[in-house]
């Protein structure tokens, strides 16, 4: 009896804090989700409804026409073939950029930790420095290099730019991860007769899942979302998604089709969201696997 009456106040105060915390969290979550919600809502309304109603009213007549238009027939600049071509441009740019910069970063990290050479600190410091050079500074020299190589204005040129910029970060990630990787394992493999690449493939890479996922998420979002390099080095039909979206939204001819703009914006953002949702799970799984390893 006395115990129960002693406990009651603490239980009720605990519940009070619980409620407060969850209420705050829910309010915050709703607040953050609101823009996405409005985008989704607007993208399935007709233009008339958008003009008449307010932002938060549900559509009376649901329609997928804006999505179809954004994908297939909307006018981007002078051509009216939708954004699908630019979407594939972005994919063609992102996949090789992410793959190449991740692989090179992994090999760099491997060399900078397990095959050290005199001056390795300097090399790493300079690569780190590269991470912090603002994009704008390299625009002119980069365009000269691309022109010299004859890949200006092409997807290949953009891939080169993004790989160059990405190596700094991917090297940083992998170097720090491999720094903690036991060197004795590499030594054991050397004695077992494995060479440089075999040690990398058979010993280090299989244990690198968490850092690969981190690097891929980082590179994918950065490269996909990049606007400046895309606008500078790949004009016209080679432009990536972000540039196309800008051109679509800023087209001044005719009526402003908010629903099509919103649909296009969601399509532009979808891949990065997808990467977070899919790879994020593997990321956690990778961390768990690492923690059980003795």
């Amino acid at each position: 009896m006395s115990i129960a009456s002693n406990n009651n106040p603490s239980v009720s105060s605990q519940r009070f804090w619980r409620v407060l915390i969850y209420t705050t969290l829910i309010v915050m979550a709703v607040f953050y989700l609101l823009p996405l919600f409005i985008m989704l809502l607007t993208s399935v309304k007709t233009l008339d409804e958008i003009r008449d109603g307010n932002l938060l009213t549900l559509p009376v007549q649901w329609t997928l026409e804006p999505w179809k238009k954004a994908w297939g027939t909307a006018c981007v600049g002078l051509t009216c073939e939708g954004i699908n071509g630019y979407f594939w441009n972005s994919i063609k740019m992102v996949v090789p950029s992410v793959a190449i910069s991740t692989i090179l970063g992994a090999i760099n990290g491997y060399i900078l930790t397990k095959w050290r050479f005199p001056g390795h600190r300097w090399v790493f410091a300079l690569m780190l420095f590269g991470c912090f050079i603002p994009f704008q500074i390299v625009l002119l020299p980069m365009s000269q290099v691309l022109g010299f190589l004859g890949i200006a204005g092409s997807t290949a040129g953009l891939v080169l730019v993004h790989v160059t910029y990405g190596i700094g970060f991917s090297t940083l990630f992998f170097r720090n991860y491999y720094e903690a990787f036991p060197t004795e394992l590499v030594n054991a493999a050397k004695i077992d007769g494995a060479g440089f690449f075999r040690i990398f493939w058979r010993i280090l890479l299989p244990s690198s899942a968490p850092i690969i996922v981190v690097t891929v998420i980082w590179q994918f979002t950065n490269i996909w979302n990049d606007f400046l390099f895309g606008a500078s080095f790949a004009a016209g039909e080679h432009a990536p998604m972000t540039v196309a979206l800008n051109n679509l939204v800023n087209s001044t001819t005719g009526v402003k089709e908010y629903n099509v703009d919103m649909a296009a914006a969601i399509i532009a953002a979808a891949p990065t969201l997808l990467v977070y949702i899919v790879a994020g799970r593997y990321f956690v799984r990778g961390l768990m696997a690492g923690s059980v390893k003795g």
């Binding site: 004795e184 394992l185 010993i203 390893k293």
Partner: peptide, 11 residues
């Protein structure tokens, strides 16, 4: 060689 940490390949 047998290492102090055993250095078994974890994967």
């Amino acid at each position: 060689m047998v290492f102090q940490s055993y250095a078994l390949y974890p994967n």
